[in-house]
Design a protein around this nucleic acid. Structure first.
Length: 468
RNA sequence: GGCGCGAUAGCCAAGCGGUUAGGCAGAGGACUGCAAAUCCUUUUAGAUCAGUUCGACUCUGAUUCGCGCCUCCA
């Protein structure tokens, strides 16, 4: 299976070949744990999940590293506002981050390194940068990276350094830097930092955010690795700076392929904490939407295109997922029947599906293939699909779901119907037999309130748990 | 100012130089006591103006509108 991805570094789609055969190292910029992540943040994590699942689908063993930024300006400010130790302040946000990933059916990364546990590695990098004459200390005790001494700076963002000066924010620069583009790799301690401080030969302080990612990615993935991902807004300066730090230290190419996810929008604007137009996962769960519905919506657009978030889309997701569930349920039921083999099979969509995800993770097209398969399976079921054919179709759904992660298998299998529900259903059946329609309708509504759907067909009355 | 992205039907959202994307909603049909759910069928596109071409939603240029990044926002 030939994969190709759009590489932000070269700005074109290229065939993907891992540095080592059959295995991939990927680093994904994780959350800064000063608050609850919103679903715009989760769009990026879902894009990364789609990427790792696609790589696994193609037969690679994936080692994914996602950092937890648990020390920076915001986490320090937040912990001091609440007058609590930094670690106590960040812990609940870390915990809810993992809970949210689980709710969205995101496959866990292999390593989630917290920045505070990797200060020695960061200090070591700074020392090397000092030794090479690329780092310098400023009067406030901070250490800066001199971009003038790293000539390829700007390659990722395609920024000409001479143009950086035309930015309107130049006046906000308050530190003593040698050159405008220089960035802090170590923040000198000041009173606002309280007890958040580490000792270093060049003075006490804390690491800069960009340096955290360079140090932790190389620790777990080596000096050169395959994939580095994040939101598009990390492309500059964060990822540009990561390249500069890493390559200045090692002299080797840092990352082969850079991939960036476009923003989630609300009313045409990016969802962000500063604009206040965001929803956390919990906000949506509290409104009755499920993790898989949100997952479906966020995977419904191509990762490199901005995606507009709407509640209409969430409702549409519920209906679409119900259709997939119905089909899988019907196949599961058929697979369990004792029926003679008749050679009826569902025409496969797996090739179209694989082609879609291999082509720069085209999830919308992958869904198109999935629904083509749903239609074909429904038609085959009506044409007398045999249990063997049903099992094969379920296997194909399982294959697709390795990548998409949105199908619920065996939903109504082993689903015990509570005695109360059974009693109500029996009453309704009796009312129907007596043609007491008002009573039977009342019981139907009552069952629906309790989360059970009643269906009448030639075979009689059946009960199903309402989909979520 | 620099770098870059986009404009597709009621809504969301893809591919493609000529042949059905897909989902939701809407409509018709099957099923039903009526429904619901499900299944089948199906209407509505390509911002504007030029150009290239036998042929453009797809390529080129311009215009209009929208969005992102430009020192720590996924």
């Amino acid at each position: 299976m030939e994969l190709s991805f759009y590489n932000s570094l070269t700005r074109q789609q290229e065939p993907f070949h891992s540095l080592k055969p059959h295995q991939v190292g990927m680093y994904s910029c994780g959350p800064t744990v000063y608050n609850y992540a919103h679903i715009g943040n989760f769009r990026a994590y879902l894009f990364e999940d789609l990427l790792r699942r696609t790589l696994e689908f193609a037969g690679y063993k994936v080692t994914q590293v996602m950092n937890l930024t648990d020390v920076d300006d915001k986490t320090i400010r937040g912990s001091q506002a609440k007058q609590m130790p930094l670690a106590d302040y960040t812990r609940p946000y870390i915990e809810s981050f993992f809970a949210d990933l689980k709710a969205l059916n995101v496959e866990p990364a292999e390593v989630y390194p917290p920045a505070t546990a990797h200060i020695p590695e960061m200090k070591q990098m700074i020392q090397v940068l000092f030794d090479k004459g690329i780092a310098y200390k400023s009067e406030d005790g901070s250490v800066y990276f001199s971009v003038d001494r790293f000539p390829s700076y700007g390659r990722l963002a395609h920024l000409d350094r001479s143009q950086l000066r035309s930015g309107v924010r130049i006046s906000t620069d308050e530190y003593e830097k040698e050159s405008f583009g220089d960035f802090a790799i170590w923040k000198g301690w000041d009173e606002k930092d309280g007890d958040v401080v580490w000792e270093a030969p060049w003075g006490k302080g804390r690491p800069g955010w960009h340096l955290e990612c360079s140090a932790m990615s190389m620790k777990y993935l080596g000096e050169s690795f395959d994939l580095h991902t994040g939101g598009i807004d990390n492309l500059f300066p964060h990822h540009e700076n990561e390249i500069a730090q890493a390559e200045a230290v090692t002299g080797k190419p840092f990352v082969q392929t850079w991939m960036h996810c476009a923003h989630l929008r609300v009313n045409g604007q990016k969802m962000s904490k500063s604009l206040g137009n965001f929803f956390t996962l919990r906000d949506l769960l509290d409104k009755g939407y499920s993790g898989r519905e949100i997952r479906y919506v966020l995977l419904g657009g191509h990762y490199r295109q901005p995606l507009n978030f709407t509640f209409d889309a969430l409702s549409a997701a519920r209906a679409a997922l119900a259709r997939i569930d119905e089909c899988v349920d019907a196949l599961t039921a058929r697979a369990g029947e004792a029926q003679e083999e008749n050679g009826v099979r569902v025409p496969s969509s797996l090739e179209a599906f694989a082609h879609a995800v291999a082509d720069d993770l085209n999830s919308p097209e992958a869904f198109s293939a999935l629904f083509a398969f749903v239609r074909a399976a429904n038609a085959a079921l009506q044409a007398g699909l045999s249990p063997v054919g049903a099992k094969l179709a379920l296997e194909e759904f399982a294959q697709m779901d390795r990548v998409l992660g949105i199908i619920t298998f065996g939903r109504n299998v082993n689903q015990a119907v509570p005695a109360e529900i059974q009693a109500l259903a029996a009453e309704r059946l009796k009312a129907r037999a007596e043609k007491n329609w008002s009573e039977s309708d009342r019981l139907r509504d009552l069952l629906a309130e309790k989360g059970w759907q009643v269906r009448d067909s030639k075979e009689g009355q059946t009960l199903k748990v309402l989909a979520k």
